[in-house]
């Protein structure tokens, strides 16, 4: 079971914080979001945005839960992927490749935004394109 509103809140926080980091040129804020996302992927019970949602927003009645039957592995994978992109961005910042660092940040913002606004599942899209190109069939046959 996955709470769709928790996922949406998570995406909204990622978009807002990385957007803020980019606009105000604060690389450490992007690093902080990367850390929070990767921690949340490795230990879902410690996912900071979800904890805030469950412990503050839900009890205060500001948001209502919207549970749905869904495998939580898919959003966790997406979060891990986003966190990894941001981690690469942190490495790029550390090496002085600022433009590359912000470009990686903006990719994460764009993907979170299309998921948030249009319910577009990037994983589904990639899988479908691979399936259509026959790549997945070849991989399955090789196994």
């Amino acid at each position: 079971m996955v709470d769709q509103n928790a996922l949406r809140f998570n995406q909204a926080m990622i978009v807002s914080l990385i957007g803020l980091a980019f606009v105000l040129n604060i690389p450490w804020l992007s690093a902080l979001v990367a850390a929070l996302m990767l921690i949340g992927t490795a230990w879902p019970g410690l996912a900071a945005f979800q904890l805030f949602y469950r412990r503050v927003l839900l009890p205060a009645g500001l948001l209502r839960p919207s549970p749905r039957q869904e495998d939580p592995a898919a959003p966790r994978f997406a979060q891990g992927l986003g966190g990894s992109f941001l981690l690469l961005a942190v490495v790029a910042f550390a090496l002085g490749a600022t433009t590359l660092g912000w470009a990686l940040n903006l990719i994460v913002v764009a993907l979170a935004l299309i998921n948030l606004l249009f319910d577009f599942c990037l994983g589904c899209f990639i899988y479908f394109q691979l399936e259509r190109a026959g790549v997945l069939g070849k991989i399955r046959a090789a196994r």
């Binding site: 749905r68 869904e70 495998d71 898919a74 599942c121 994983g123 479908f128 399936e131």
Partner: peptide, 14 residues
């Protein structure tokens, strides 16, 4: 839909 699509199974089909 496709068999590999989780969103199809969990959201669209219902």
């Amino acid at each position: 839909w496709t068999a590999s699509c989780a969103q199809c199974r969990s959201l669209q089909t219902p």
